[in-house]
Amino acid sequence: MKVAYWPGCVSRGFTPELHGSMEKIAPKVGIELLELDRANCCGAGVIAEHNQELADTLNARTFALAQQSGGAMMMNICSTCQGAQSECQERLDASTEYRDLINENLAPEKLSYEKGITNKNFLWLLVEDIGLEKLASLVKRPLDGLRIAPFYGCYIIRPTERLAYREHPERDQYLEQVIDVIGAESVAYTGSHKCCGFPVITMNKETSLTQAGRHLGDAIDAGADALVTPCPLCHLNLDLQQPEAKKFVNRELGIPVLHFPQLIGLALGLEPKELGMGKHVVSTKAVAAKVAAMAVAA
């Protein structure tokens, strides 16, 4: 299927391995990525905090570009993009009058957003539109024995009403479902649906990194080999900041954090290096070694 693909800023900035791994696995799961290379930042909630009209206009612009692209729907690979864009979409779709006002802001570019775009995080698209059965059939390397702790990121689990949980009530269990389908074992721990702390990293480092540190510690204590997250901003706090986070929780950490497409890539038979797993702050070598020992089907 063709999708209008919005990779987000961070997946091409501080976590290039995310965008890279998504590009690698897309053809393998039957997705053709129509990259929105003219689209702008979702605002990550910060622009909405500054000026709602601005945030809504910027995201309406992205939606309008997506609607022009010919893709069946829009897809992102960042929980934060999903959340920030869904928030704007909720307002844009609620009122014709308001939508008209926003579209007027886009008129100079001859862009216009039409109510009702479908915008999904890759996790949702994989489970809902490709399907777990299909995914299972594509697995070349069942990740048998790999213990993975899911970490969702707030923006794709709350608020449920805005994020269409009424239609898709299991969206907060997809990571566990996928982990199981690809042969790995999902690890239950208290932090999976909590906040990584990233949004306040510049405002209150202690609050921010205590959150990250606790969840990492809990995952380690639950026996996980790695965390997996569909959100690159969570990744920044959990991986890039992990050496700092340990100071706030007074314990050793040191658990790798995988991007969701990387984990899928491993199961599809791709090699850790191809998936950019060498570009993490916390070494992924132990995971890579475990994976290397697993058989890949032809």
């Binding site: 009209e53 609620a94 014709t96």
Partner: peptide, 26 residues
Amino acid sequence: KDIYKKIHGRDDRIELNLYIVGEDAD
């Protein structure tokens, strides 16, 4: 930049308050 200019140039910030207008305002 033009979008910024236009929106920052307004006298008042425009906000759609769904609590006031309703989630299905239409």
